[in-house]
Design a protein around this nucleic acid. Structure first.
Lengths: 338, 338
DNA sequence: CTGAAAGCGCTTACAG
DNA sequence: CTGAAAGCGCTTACAG
């Protein structure tokens, strides 16, 4: 079968430990010996066995990525979080075990206690996340992408949705808007504890009050025809509204066709601001001003910190909750009121 | 740290081998002994170490899933292939290593020769897939989702795109259509060897000829505004066309808003047939008749066969190319011509 | 600069 | 029905 370190050692006429050290560079090897080892490795096509290495070092060089698939979710947005995590992991020499079990807590328990992974990346974090209890039992460090109330002890990376809302409201206030409709994530997102939903909404309402702006908040939906119905109802209930804030992937993705069906144009008839990433906007051809959600930045920063923890970097410090600063990207879908 | 099999053995007052056999059920254990072992396992929270087990058995119980991310790809469709593979793997006791390295052949080599995975699932297969050479060096079995010219020796699962095209053409022919526009995948898909592109197109043209139907074929695009421009150009070049066949995710996703912008209605002004999955249609609210692409079925069947090969099932037989039978789902977006 | 040996935590013939 | 021991393929103190 596959060549082992013993085969290489024999072919190079050295001991197995010398081969190992040549591989790791953890001690000096004479150039001549190293050359012979290199030749033997190339000749035999040797690659160290991952399981054996994991057993000897207690390190797998694998990160676990845990997704949580909710019913009624708008799946097309998911991959934009997965990819940056995968890329950042590889840049740091780690592979990725993708875990999608419906028994989410059991999956965390299973993969951590069997030492399949060196660290854990939690996606789709909810306010009371059941996976966190399983994670506390684990010896591996973890990082959350999202925010959980019971997340103490873990690093968390999330967009600052409060600040995102304030950016949007400030922007509309500057333009003179005084009556605004907000489409939030669907009700079930609140129910299952997607804190980004109310963090954005509460901040928007609070900030708007400061300007004397009226905000009419409505639940969006994730499937047609409910998406359109929710939009119709929201706009009908606020006929004077001059701006629309959309904090929901499915709704913003459907908005271009919705506006057309209703004969509306942004920003002439209605100013529109969304909350989505550049990649998402590009895939769905969204011509709207938005708050950039930066999934690539979140994923990359989260993974980097996790890996520093795994490495035992003494400078990492205490667990932190990092709320990444949002940025407003003006795509011209809002206008100044006369 | 974590409890080992030795800790369990000591706590239960038995040997390590007895604990191991109690776990695997590979030999009879007295009920009393088994109870003591169970108690010790529960007490200590023991889970076998995956690396040690892999080393001893030469089995990792992990499948590698290899994605290939192309520039200009319409990413939102990707996850519908990943999820069924993940689910099917878990149903059979396997976890999933998701590999997204840009050096795709190197990634296959690295993960297989280090024995990180027991088997390989290749996604985004191209006609001349560079990963296949790396795969031939591997001892692990593999399955392709898609079709490659150089895929001999491997199991392949793909939709029968030829038959899909014939279903669509037959359907339109029955309704009396004689002039049809076909939007194919973008040119770069052909360039990089996405065989589904020409397998569908060639079959559509051939079948149409049999009916005397004129097919005007045009490349679609994956980004706005090119998507719309491609549609405009295609329809302008065939003003007499009564039906539109869309074999491109990005274009079909944009079609509802496109039709509205152009004041067109399906099927009144134009009959429309797409090629997409139920999940995709649902996420994008597509009201079009379509050929179901069945990513869940492909993924599940591919994984099941792969796992039988891994298990060394003698009945698996020679590698096969399985073209899954497509089904036309009528959603009422085509009409009978007078 | 290099080697012999122990050990990581399992599984599985071999013995009884 | 159960145990002692070898072995999977690495890494890393320990010695020289």
């Amino acid at each position: 079968m596959a060549a082992t370190i013993g085969d290489v050692a024999r072919a190079a006429g050295v001991s197995r430990s010398t081969v190992s050290y040549a591989l790791s560079g953890k001690r000096a090897i004479s150039e001549e010996t190293r050359d012979r080892i290199q030749a033997a490795i190339a000749e035999l096509g040797f690659t160290p066995n991952a399981g054996a290495r994991a057993l000897a070092t207690s390190q797998t060089k694998v990160l676990g990525l845990y997704l949580q698939f909710q019913e009624d979710e708008f799946a097309p947005a998911m991959l934009q979080y997965v990819l940056p995590v995968s890329t950042a992991a590889r840049e740091n020499g780690f592979d990725l075990l993708m875990v999608t079990d419906s028994d989410v807590a059991g999956a965390v328990k299973r993969t951590t206690s069997s030492a399949m992974v060196d660290g854990v990346v939690l996606l789709d974090v909810t306010y009371d996340d059941v996976r966190l209890e399983a994670l506390r039992e684990a010896v591996q460090p973890a990082v959350l992408i999202g925010y959980a109330r019971n997340g103490e002890g873990f690093d968390s990376y999330d967009l600052d949705f409060g600040e995102a809302a304030r950016l949007v409201v400030d922007h509309l206030a500057e333009l003179g808007h005084r009556d605004v409709v907000l489409i939030t994530p669907p009700r079930h997102v609140y129910d299952r504890g997607g804190s980004y939903a109310w963090r954005f909404r509460d901040a928007a309402i609070e900030r708007a009050a400061r300007y004397g702006i009226r905000v009419s908040s409505h639940y969006g939906d994730s499937r047609q025809p409910a998406i359109v119905e929710a939009l119709d109802a929201a706009l009908a209930s606020s006929p004077e509204a001059t701006a629309l804030i959309i904090h929901n992937d499915a709704t913003i993705a459907a908005l271009p066709s919705y506006l057309h069906e209703r004969g509306l144009h942004a920003p002439e008839d209605l100013s529109v601001v969304g909350v989505f990433s550049r990649e998402f906007g590009q895939a769905f051809s969204l011509p709207f001003t938005s708050v950039e959600t930066s999934p690539d930045r979140l994923g990359q920063e989260a993974v980097r910190r996790l890996i520093r923890r795994i490495a035992g970097d003494p400078d990492v410090g205490a667990p932190l909750v990092r709320f990444v600063e949002p940025v407003l990207v003006d795509r011209g879908s809002t206008r100044t009121l006369a």
